[in-house]
Design a binder for these strands. Sequence first.
DNA 1: GAGATACGCTACGACCTGTAGCGAATAGAG
DNA 2: CTCTATTCGCTACAGGTCGTAGCGTATCTC
Lengths: 220, 220
Amino acid sequence: MAPTPQPATQPATPPAPHRAKGRPRSAAADRAILDATREALAELGWGGLTMGDVAVRAGVAKTTLYRRWPSKNELVVDAVASLFDELEIADRGSLRADIADVVAQFADLLARPESQAALLALFAEGSRDPQLRRRIREHIVDPQKRLVHEGLAHAVARGEVPADGDATAIAEQIDIIFDTIAGAVEHRMLVIGEPADPVWINRFIDLLLNQGLVSGCPGC
Amino acid sequence: MAPTPQPATQPATPPAPHRAKGRPRSAAADRAILDATREALAELGWGGLTMGDVAVRAGVAKTTLYRRWPSKNELVVDAVASLFDELEIADRGSLRADIADVVAQFADLLARPESQAALLALFAEGSRDPQLRRRIREHIVDPQKRLVHEGLAHAVARGEVPADGDATAIAEQIDIIFDTIAGAVEHRMLVIGEPADPVWINRFIDLLLNQGLVSGCPGC
DNA sequence: GAGATACGCTACGACCTGTAGCGAATAGAG
DNA sequence: CTCTATTCGCTACAGGTCGTAGCGTATCTC
């Protein structure tokens, strides 16, 4: 989701976004625009954000925005999606710790004021636009799930999880666990408005990995 | 969240919204406007919705909208919040069944096309507006949690849950369970875009009430 | 019937979107 | 160094939307 080449000739191949003939686009302007967009989004929300305001904040002309993004919608998508580029997986010694680490990163991301209105508005648009939903899955959801799957691979390498056990079933379970935790973190931050602190995160992972919440292990 | 009295004199007391002196406001117009708003929301999303369009769909003048709601924002909030008035608790014989019932109602609500963009956009606005967030908690979140608490009271009456056990702790656990399931349902419907069918719901409640997902009860 | 209010209609100013045209600036190619 | 292509900032613009104001008419209470 780098600034897309907006001129009429669409190369269709990702490697060379725009041919280097004339004056190159200012990378500083790219960054300034995306930063200004996130800033304005945090202050004004999706509805209050205007292209003219973003241009003023970024110190560029409004036409410079439209050379890079065809509409406000696309600009906001890129500004929000770029937040998720920082997510990383670190081998912290156990499957549980790896999951906790990714969840904590996600919680930190959602704790930023610019993420909240932006991400929700992005999801709202995605609910009407299948193509946008696909981009959301590719750039936001899948990277997170990929991190957990990498963590699972580490766990198998450590012998923590039996490799002979039905691997796809375990992968599906990881998917469900991640959906659950991501949803819970989102709900807590975006709907309730309270931060998902480490204690809260630990409690959830206890619940999901070890035991039921209400009465321990009633079925055991 | 009934249509608020917009005239200058704000009674500040809920029971009598507007004094009955002149011609009363058309209740049919109220319903037509809210219905038209939800319809337009489903088709066009928050950003594409226009007051003029809603007025045309509802068959009323645009000024009639502004006599009831001060802005588009408030109108949409009311239109969305009214969806949650239908949520009910039924004593289905077990705590688990009661929870499953509420969750299924919530999932059905989120499955409606008009709910998705509307609810997310509502949450997005709430992330910037503490007063709106409070209204969301009062009219959407708390009613759901209240249902689960009522279900818990039924469970205690049935002897399913020990009343001597730390009641507040159990209530907190119920809160967390509900947050988790609500978040997961929201994530599945609003972010991923796939329905939370009964099988999926059952799987989640198994996870939350009975046993961990990955390896049964490893700590038992 | 008198008074008060809602209704539909039209018109309006302010704002935002996205586009077009201009001259100046900045890169590579010959 | 010159030529060419592209970007940049600036100004202006048409189109659409928001929310308000004014008017005559309709409908309710006293």
